[in-house]
Simulated assay, not measured.
Amino acid sequence: MYKVLIIEDDPMIGDMISMYLGEEGFEVIRMETGQKGIEAIKQFAPDVILLDLMLPDMDGLELCSQVRTTSRVPIMIVSMKNKVVERVAALGAGADDFMCKPFSMHEMSARVHALIRRSNFYQNASDSARMNPPARQDAKSERAEALLADKNKIILDVQTRSMIVQGQLVETTYSEFEIMKCFVNHPGRVYTREDLLQTVRGFDSYVTDRAIDVHIANLRKKIEDNPKEPRRIRTVWGVGYKFVY
């Protein structure tokens, strides 16, 4: 039975979601404040979190960022806010999906299932890679397919979907990894925002040009010595971005 943590202070909405997901076979608990939600994450170990942005004790984006520093649990924002800038901010804070109130319970349930499915797929792929390392005699060919590296020690492992920068493991979202894979595969190529949108569309529910800029900004923080003066992910004004060694 999959577990859902709802962090929502509105009792009517919270109870309605809890009842619907409970009837769908989920184990559900609801917390009314951000602090109680943080405590519940440790104790309840949810498979997915439904998070309201407007909580009585803290901002939902702040909570989302805090959770993302220690956990990969999928987070879906459920909020009355529906402006593009707010959805982009949520993605930038580490959310995986965003639904605007009011919404269809059927769609909400489908998205919860999709988030859990995707999370389990990545986890299973990572576990499989750790438990079944390539045979020594095939190591060279296996790693040639699994690793995409540049001369400055940026390594993408497509089996475990992890990025290593100068010997350090760096966490990425799904979309960040896909964008970085395009860059490392084709250094010097200029990608328009539309190119990158097509790369991640289907994984970000509300992906926009602005969301691509947020992903680029986050990647620069993770791989650049000075994100304000990027040397690797460069802006091609009026066009898009390119990656250089």
Score class of each variant (00 low, 15 high):
Tyr2Met: 10
Val4Lys: 01
Leu5Thr: 06
Ile6Trp: 00
Ile6Gly: 10
Asp10Asn: 15
Met12Trp: 10
Ile13His: 00
Gly14Glu: 05
Met16Arg: 02
Ser18Asp: 07
Gly25Lys: 08
Glu27Leu: 11
Glu27Phe: 08
Val28Trp: 02
Arg30Met: 06
Glu32Gln: 05
Gly34Val: 01
Gln35Glu: 09
Gln35Met: 09
Glu39Asn: 15
Ala40Val: 07
Lys42Asp: 09
Pro46Lys: 04
Pro46Asp: 14
Ile49Cys: 11
Leu50Ala: 04
Leu50Asp: 04
Asp52Trp: 15
Leu53Gly: 07
Leu53Gln: 04
Leu53Phe: 00
Met54Cys: 04
Met54Pro: 01
Leu61Thr: 10
Ser65Asp: 06
Ser65Val: 00
Arg68Thr: 03
Ser71Gly: 06
Ser71Cys: 07
Arg72Tyr: 02
Arg72Thr: 12
Val73Pro: 03
Pro74Glu: 09
Ile77Trp: 00
Met80Ser: 12
Val84Leu: 09
Val85Ile: 06
Val85Glu: 13
Val85Thr: 07
Arg87Met: 14
Val88Ser: 02
Ala90Gly: 13
Leu91Gln: 04
Leu91Ser: 13
Gly92Glu: 07
Ala95Met: 10
Ala95Pro: 15
Asp96Lys: 03
Pro102Ser: 08
Phe103Ser: 04
Met105Leu: 12
Ser109Ala: 13
Ala110Asp: 08
Ala110Phe: 01
Ile116Thr: 02
Ile116Lys: 02
Arg117Gly: 02
Ser128Cys: 12
Ala135Glu: 14
Asp138Ala: 10
Lys140Ala: 14
Arg143Lys: 05
Ala146Pro: 11
Leu147Gly: 08
Asp150Ile: 02
Asp150Trp: 01
Asn152His: 13
Lys153His: 14
Ile154Thr: 13
Ile155Asp: 03
Ile155Leu: 15
Asp157Gly: 05
Thr160Arg: 15
Thr160Lys: 14
Arg161Val: 03
Met163Phe: 12
Gln166Thr: 13
Thr172Ala: 02
Glu176Thr: 06
Met180Pro: 05
Met180Ser: 13
Met180Phe: 00
Met180Cys: 11
His186Arg: 13
Pro187Asp: 01
Gly188His: 12
Thr192Trp: 11
Arg193Gly: 00
Glu194Leu: 08
Asp195Pro: 11
Leu196Cys: 10
Leu197Asp: 01
Gly202Asp: 06
Asp204Lys: 14
Ser205His: 08
Ser205Gly: 10
Val207Tyr: 11
Thr208Arg: 12
Arg210Trp: 00
Val214Cys: 08
His215Val: 05
Leu219Trp: 02
Leu219Tyr: 01
Leu219Ser: 03
Glu224Gln: 05
Asn226Ala: 01
Pro227Ala: 07
Glu229Gly: 05
Glu229Thr: 10
Arg231Ser: 12
Arg231Trp: 06
Arg232Gln: 07
Val236Asn: 03
Val236Arg: 03
Val236Met: 09
Gly240Gln: 03
Tyr241Met: 07
Val244Arg: 02
